[in-house]
């Protein structure tokens, strides 16, 4: 998989939002590569910048308050940040598609679900209306919904079914890259399990590259091959599923695992990460995690840690990484 062609390469991405009296540093120098056919899990807490990265790839960072201040995003070798809106529109929904978190608000309540899928197909493909309808019906079947339900409205579907419709819509033009923003968070666990299973099967069938945004390490374990952990707008750890789950190294990643109640353990108290994520309006000199880190030293607060890469490609943004005893 290492040799697969990169679909997206993000280099040194910075995104800021401007409020009346402050600048919010949402994404601070993110480098990330997603290769063909790969599912990359982007894990982090609320406000870490996960969704902003996805929106930047899709070119829909809210304007004028949001701004990509620095960096490049290459989609199949082309810097899409330099594209004109007209060219970007032909990529969006066609080559790059997004599944939003909440299926209840992602669908138009007064349009039949089939027509909503057909619309995307008709827009990006030079085919007849009848062909587009047929294709939309096939998409419904692909996600396990009978084609007869093409003519129904969103309110006639359950939450899990609506999310399937949203997935069908995203996959309708056979995109090369799928941005899935917490696609199962709003669903019940039994329904979540069904949707995840379906996404795994579809990915094998269609070989789509997926950026899976989630806060749930359980979801990551069940669907991803690569994992990037993001904290305060920076990637703090990146590696294969095995590297992250068997050898979590960054203190924040360790903290995330320690915060989870485990089904198979008898421990009486969780080990939470103390404190909270730093205020994104304040620029921090050193390591952004230092205030919550039990290993933090003076050096950590003074010097911003660079990425340390192990010989087998496991990346850690921590001064302790690679040193004795770490």
């Amino acid at each position: 998989m290492e040799n697969n062609k990169p679909i997206v390469e993000i280099r040194d991405l910075h995104v800021q939002f401007h409020s009346d009296d402050a600048v919010i540093h949402a994404v601070n120098g993110v480098d990330l590569t997603i290769r063909e056919g790969e599912t990359l899990g982007l894990v982090g807490e609320t406000g870490a910048g996960k969704t902003t990265i996805a929106r930047a790839i899709l070119g829909i960072v809210a304007k004028p308050q949001g701004e990509i201040t620095q960096g490049e995003i290459f989609f199949e070798g082309q810097d899409i940040l330099k594209l004109h809106e007209k060219d970007m529109r032909s990529l969006r929904g066609n080559q790059i598609a997004m599944i939003f978190q909440d299926p209840m608000t992602a669908l138009n309540p007064i349009e039949r679900v089939g027509e909503q899928i057909e619309e995307a197909i008709g827009l990006h493909n030079d085919i007849s209306h009848a062909e587009a309808i047929e294709r939309a019906m096939q998409m419904l079947e692909l996600v396990g919904i009978p084609r007869e339900r093409y003519f129904e409205y969103p309110h006639q579907f359950s939450g899990g079914m609506k999310q399937r419709v949203v997935i069908a819509m995203a996959l309708a033009c056979n995109p090369k890259l799928l941005l899935a923003d917490e696609p199962t968070t709003a669903l019940d666990v039994t329904i979540q399990a069904q949707v995840l299973k379906m996404m795994r099967e579809l990915k094998e069938k269609l070989n789509t590259a997926v950026l899976m945004i989630t806060h749930d390490l359980g979801v990551v374990a069940s669907i991803c091959q690569k994992v990037a952990v993001i904290y305060a707008g920076e990637i703090v750890e990146y590696g294969t599923l095995e590297q992250i789950f068997d050898h979590p190294t960054h203190p924040y990643t360790l903290g995330l695992f320690g915060s989870l109640p485990k089904l198979d353990s008898t421990e009486k108290r969780l080990k939470p990460i103390r404190g909270m994520m730093p205020d994104p309006t304040i620029e921090i000199q050193g390591c952004k995690f230092a205030d919550r880190c039990e290993y933090a030293t003076e050096e950590c607060r003074a010097r911003h840690p660079e990425i340390y890469t192990t010989p087998d490609g496991h990346q850690i943004r921590c001064l302790r990484a690679g040193k004795e005893g770490a």
């Binding site: 666990v189 399990a193 359980g218 789950f245 068997d246 989870l260 089904l263």
Partner: peptide, 20 residues
């Protein structure tokens, strides 16, 4: 079914999913 559906943050866990 409910128990088997929980995504476990452990890549070596071997749990069979009971799909409903």
């Amino acid at each position: 079914a409910l128990l088997s559906a929980i995504p476990v943050p452990d890549i070596h866990a071997n749990n069979e999913l009971v799909t409903l």
